[in-house]
Amino acid sequence: MERWKIVRAFLLGPLIEAAVPKPGNVNRFRDFEDLTFYHFLFADTAVAGVYYEAVKTAELLKKGILEPWEAGLGELMRRAVQASREAQDANPNFGIIALSLPLMMGMAIGRNMLDARKKARLLIEESTVRDTMEFYRAIRIANPKGIPSGVKYDVYSDDSFRELFQDEINLARLAEISCERELIFCEWLNEYELSYSTFGRLYELIKELPLEDAVVRAFVELLANNLDTLIIRKAGVEEAKLVQEKAKKVLKGELTVEELDAFMREKGDLRNPGSLADIMAVSLSLLVLRGLRIELKDGKVWGVTGRP
């Protein structure tokens, strides 16, 4: 797959995700007190250089010049997060970076979009303890909300790097340990199952609805069918279940999207579904790779795939 095509897709997908007025998230109409739409614009474009380098590295892997364990996934993640942080002062895209980089590299190695899932999983499995250490450094730079303390391999503990080394914890092992706490790790392990199924749903919906409406509909379905792990970490599992129940009511026609959005903003950003927003960003990147372009029809922006 052509290098810049991959990079463009994984830059544009998160930008679309940030712009669309999805319930509970920052968007082009709504901000949070400490996170704005502009943070996403600056952060999501700041990573372009690292993304380009990641795809170049993947091409060397495909040619056999490098082995999978030499991919340097952890360092690439840390450098992308650092670039994001240098462009703005919040954490808009740590999860997007962590999801996108293995899959981008899988796109460059694999035969097609489906094969890319397996290649991304291979890179996670073949990662090294150094990759995990660099990933931990990336977390410390991003400083995401809700990271637990006092747990085994505590990100902010001075002993964590020694423990990771002693126990030989690569990214795959870390994901197995942490999947229950963060959706990103589950995606690493299950070959991006949720991202790809959401991409498939978006591909169907854009045939019936304008682009923004399709994204909102797919996102409400995500909320209705999954508990957001960021909400769980910040506010507890009961709050996450409340959001899920409200989203189900939207699908049943018992609640409007606007009412769901108002409910999710009642407590500031505690009910902000950031983990599922990351899934949506990657799913939109896949849709861009599939050929997404836009057309204006009757004053509405529609997403179209295929050649004009």
Rank of each mutant, 00 (worst) to 15 (best):
K249C: 12
I294F: 02
A80P: 09
K56F: 10
G303A: 06
N27H: 14
Q244I: 09
I294E: 06
F40W: 11
L287A: 01
T57S: 09
A175V: 07
G299H: 01
E126L: 13
V243S: 01
L76M: 10
E259V: 05
F135L: 09
L242P: 11
Q82I: 07
L194Q: 09
K207H: 12
A9W: 11
K118C: 11
V129A: 02
E168V: 00
M107E: 12
P102V: 09
L114C: 08
Y38I: 14
V50P: 03
E70A: 06
E193V: 05
L35V: 02
A108E: 14
L260T: 10
K118W: 14
S84V: 04
E245H: 09
S283R: 08
I279C: 03
M1K: 13
A172G: 08
G72C: 12
D115E: 10
D115W: 08
R217G: 07
W69R: 05
N93H: 14
Y52A: 12
R181I: 05
A71I: 01
E191H: 07
L270H: 06
N91R: 03
M77Q: 11
R28F: 14
E239K: 14
A240T: 15
Y192H: 12
L292S: 10
M264Y: 00
K234Y: 07
K234R: 11
G95N: 04
L99E: 08
V257C: 04
R233W: 03
N170D: 04
N272L: 01
E208C: 06
H39F: 02
Y196E: 05
P14L: 12
K252W: 07
K248Q: 13
R290A: 12
D31V: 04
A235H: 09
E221G: 02
D154A: 01
A142V: 00
F29K: 02
V304A: 02
G72S: 08
K267R: 15
T36Y: 08
V7R: 10
Q88H: 04
V250C: 05
S160N: 10
F165L: 09
L35Q: 07
Y136P: 00
I16L: 15
R117L: 05
A277G: 04
E254V: 05
L289G: 04
L66W: 15
Y203K: 12
